[in-house]
Nucleic acid binder design. Sequence first.
DNA 1: AATTGCGCACGAG
DNA 2: CTCGTGCGCAATT
Length: 607
Amino acid sequence: MSEPKYREWILETIDSLRSRKARPDLERICRMVRRRHGSDPDKTRAELEKLIQEQTVLKVSYKGSISYRNAAKVQRKCRKRTEQTTDSCEPLGEHDKRARCNNNDGALSLTDQEECEDKEPEEPGASPCPDPLPQTSPSALVKEEQILPQSSGNSFVSCGASGHSAGSVKASASRDKSSVAEAGATGSSLHRDAANRRAEGDVTLGHEGSDDDDDDSDEKEKKTCSSAGSPHPRNKPPASTKPKLKEGAKGSGTRCSDSPDESSADLGDRLVSAVRSLSERHRGSAATRGHAPPGLKEILDYLSTQRGMPGEKLTRNRVKVVLEREIERGRLRRTRLGHITAAARGMGAAKPSARLLKSALQDRRLAKKEEVKTEERMEVESEEHDTVGSAEDVPITDGGPAGVKASPDTQVQNDNGTDPPLTSDQCSLQQEVDVGGREEQTVSVEPEDAEKNTDAPDQLHPSTEDQLIVTSETVKAPSSIPLRNCADCKLEVGVSSCLLTPSASPGAAEERGMNEGIGGFLKFETGGMSPVDWTVADVVSYFTAAGFPEQALAFRTQEIDGKSLLLMQRNDVLTGLSIRLGPALKIYERHVKVLQRTHFQEDEAFC
DNA sequence: AATTGCGCACGAG
DNA sequence: CTCGTGCGCAATT
């Protein structure tokens, strides 16, 4: 798996390049990562390759050249490929189909289809295709043939994992414009105007055509990359710029500190605290409403006055990218007016809900643009006093008081709020159904962010993705499920919590496709040890027992103990542990979330 | 010299 | 018309 640090860097780089309208090609990515982090281009390339395999990054051919996309940001239009999308895609088992379903313009979105389609078959008001779905996850589903012929700009995607991509690549290439095809086949670079200038692109393409996908591309890329950044020509410049960390420990990325994506994470932290400080100032001085929260500029200024990471270069663009990311994560929030505010209460607990909500809202954003106006006002107000947190959380947790803790993950499923209690078995069953089937309702509640999103670049939230996936896996009519006693299950709280109840039956779980060792966690549960008290080893054991031995290692690597586990967000699991999306989603949906819910539920009970 | 910003043209819904 | 993309070139750093 890719190193989290690199994942961050690469994604950030891709985002950055895209934001400045530059093609995120291998060369630029390598160069930028090297410049910013001192990473060796080869290493970057290798990591990029891993990301492609994990489908965190999508490799596409656009207008004849290879380009990379942040899978999480590829969303867009689920447009109306309705018929097909719905039909073919729905059966989720078929990854392939899915893969085919999604693709759009230059970018493709693996996720689209999922969201678009089914989710809300009946919802008239709901837009058929909400839209953004963050997902890296869905992509994970797409196994092989990841080429999605692009209808539009002639781009195709090539996802790593496959094995025979060669064909695919070629095919795709040919589909692209004739010119492209030409390039691919012959390798000639003359066809395009740009060709002259960008020989690299063409070259790459040409190679691509002949070999199998990634491997090959790797090779070529390697060349490109190395030439671009490496040794001979101008290796030193960058190094000189940021000598400190970079050169010293590039190799395996051990360098920075312990934490994974240290620099970027750190920048994110600084960003958040900067926003807080600025907000404080504003509040304090102007004391009043009407005073706007800080904007990018102020934040930039603020950051520049503070000491940063040692060889870090804080460019506007970079801050912007990190900012976007933090917004996406829910740690920061952008008001409709473009101001930045910190998400309420300390990140941890609050963010998930805010974020999820946001994503949900985002989805519906299209469907309800009208509401936006109204919301605008709300937003303005809210930005003044605080941070999203309060507003967002409240609605979600119908439970009300207990909301705080539960909110983090509850949101995803709290849609079920209305459901009657279930028995544990039933609960588990239903959980899945619910999750998939109804997020929209919840969403509608909070219009506020919808607009905000409008301003923000598109981002997808993984949140929806899990839901989608889950849904797809289990398809049952919510209504058909008998729910009744499960007195212990809180109404508001997601049903999933029931999974952990002692009565949960492994057998049932398996039927549902959850074979990840329920017995294992039951043991833990019944053992009386609360997840909070788990040590890293316990966590590892838990996941090992749950059927995720490999992934369990990631928890160890990241030193996730019980407390950390309870604070983990979906994204942390999906992207922070360097584990594949498929398992990551399962781990999150079936275990982390469940553990969290259960835990918080208990807490609430005691309160 | 390297980066970044961005107008503008493209092609697809 | 709206969007995502990214070329090409000017402005910055």
